[in-house]
């Protein structure tokens, strides 16, 4: 995949992969599919993946994006891995609360707090 097609910025912190969205709006179906594929590749590279997804740049996201996050969560769980979310804008956090996905995901205010929570 050409570098310019990536929708995520990733870095590693110890054994944790930290992924950040490049787009402020996670609404476009093709981009969401690409994000799902990129996150799946990260998860499938490790026998017990540790993944932190930071929403620090995100202003809007759609239910399709939530669906992709759930699919990734299921894949991480299937490998006995750990997934954390962080830096979610209050308006977007409300979307997680309305859909009760704040109960499904481990969400932290900051990436630092999320990184400390990995076992």
């Amino acid at each position: 995949m050409p570098a310019e097609d990536t929708r995520l910025r990733t870095r590693t912190h110890g054994d944790v992969t930290v992924a950040e969205f490049i787009d402020r709006n996670i609404l476009d179906e093709a981009n969401i599919q690409m994000i799902g594929e990129e996150l799946s590749t990260i998860v499938e590279k490790s026998p017990r993946p540790k993944l932190l997804i930071s929403f620090s740049n995100v202003d809007h996201l759609s239910s399709a994006a939530l669906g992709t996050l759930i699919t990734i969560n299921n894949k991480v769980k299937a490998r006995n891995g750990q997934l954390r979310l962080s830096n979610i804008d209050p308006q977007i956090y409300e979307v997680f609360v309305i859909t009760k996905l704040n109960k499904l995901f481990q969400i932290h205010d900051t990436a630092e707090a999320a990184l400390k929570s990995f076992a």
């Binding site: 239910s63 669906g67 499904l104």
Partner: peptide, 12 residues
């Protein structure tokens, strides 16, 4: 249904 990836658009 919490782990089902679809079906949230209408409720939102």
């Amino acid at each position: 249904n919490l782990e089902r990836p679809s079906g949230r658009g209408l409720m939102l």
